[in-house]
Amino acid sequence: MGKLGDMANKAKEMAKGHPDQADKGVEGAERLVDERTGNKYDAQTDKAADAARRSYGRGEPTQR
């Protein structure tokens, strides 16, 4: 696997070990994108955030 894949795997493992911190990062990124796009892509950012959470074991749907 290439360097990018190795980094992604390391990030996923770190998120699994620190899910609360990972949740804060995902929420912050989602909020930032929504703010900068005027919520134009809100459904897509919700879906992406949920997928990110599932990748490290937090499959809970977005609470809004």
Rank of each mutant, 00 (worst) to 15 (best):
G59M: 01
M14A: 08
K40E: 02
G25K: 12
A22F: 08
K16T: 10
R64S: 07
P19Q: 15
D23Y: 03
A49D: 02
H18N: 14
G2T: 15
G5A: 08
T45W: 03
A11R: 06
P19T: 13
M14D: 12
A11Y: 12
R54A: 11
R58A: 10
R36P: 05
K24N: 13
D20W: 02
A15Q: 06
N9W: 09
K12D: 11
N9Y: 07
K40M: 07
V33Y: 15
D34P: 07
G28W: 03
A11N: 15
N39L: 04
A52R: 00
R64P: 13
T62P: 11
E35A: 10
A43E: 06
A29N: 09
G59S: 06
E30W: 11
R64M: 11
R54T: 07
H18Y: 09
R31K: 15
T62K: 02
L4W: 06
S55K: 11
R53W: 00
G25Y: 03
T37N: 03
E30R: 15
G59F: 03
A8I: 15
G59N: 02
D20I: 01
V33T: 11
G57Q: 02
A51R: 05
A11Q: 04
A49K: 01
K47E: 10
V26E: 07
R53S: 13
M14E: 12
R53E: 05
A49R: 02
M7K: 05
M7A: 04
E27P: 14
T62W: 15
R58G: 01
L32G: 10
D6W: 02
G17Y: 10
T37S: 04
